[in-house]
């Protein structure tokens, strides 16, 4: 197809105007003015400086950006911040209570369930979602239901061990129970 002459191409639409978006992030209400094209992931990383949530592909293919929205794990790269207006977002930074680590965080350190650490916040948030869902009881079920979180360092066996340990101490929430 012959390329259009520059002069014939329609002028591109200007960047979208910001709109107010209110998110409850880790228990704190935050109102941002974001262009609608800002994903939840970029809102967290670029506008709230919560860089614990990672960008590994930006296309829902790796799970590094996993956060909990209203308690459920999702890929924050594939939703717009505006679409989550009014919702409760929990990121890796929100799992810690004061100085105390979440049992998953403790278990990940103990079992060396990470190497480079880049997928780790997503793994931990995903595991928190997994435990809340209450669908995994065996190691194979953990493996399957954690397969949306790639770990290129290959820490999978230790991730499974860490989740197995944390599962014993973290009770699934009632509505997630089978």
């Amino acid at each position: 197809m012959a390329p259009l002459k520059a002069s014939l191409r329609p002028a591109p639409a200007p960047p979208p105007a910001p709109i107010p978006v209110t998110l409850n992030v880790n228990g704190v209400e935050r109102t941002l003015h974001l262009a609608p094209w800002t994903t939840l992931l970029d809102a967290l990383r670029l506008h709230l400086d919560l860089t614990g949530t990672k960008k590994g592909c930006d296309h829902g293919q790796c799970g590094a950006c996993t956060v909990l929205v209203d308690g459920r794990r999702i890929n924050s790269c594939l939703t717009l911040a505006a679409m989550q207006d009014g919702r409760k977002v929990t990121t890796i930074e929100g799992l810690t209570t004061g100085d105390a680590l979440h049992p998953l965080q403790e278990a990940f350190i103990e079992h060396d369930a990470f190497q480079c650490g880049y997928c780790t916040p997503g793994q931990i948030c995903s595991a928190a979602g997994l435990i809340a869902e209450g669908k995994a009881t065996t190691d194979d079920e953990i493996r399957e239901l954690m397969s949306g979180n790639l770990c290129r360092c290959g820490a999978y066996p230790n991730i499974v061990a860490a989740i197995r340990q944390a599962m014993a101490t973290v009770a699934p929430k009632a509505e997630g129970a089978p």
């Binding site: 459920r72 794990r73 890929n75 995903s126 949306g148």
Partner: peptide, 9 residues
Amino acid sequence: GASAQLRNM
């Protein structure tokens, strides 16, 4: 299909 996260969305 997909992953647990994507199925939640």
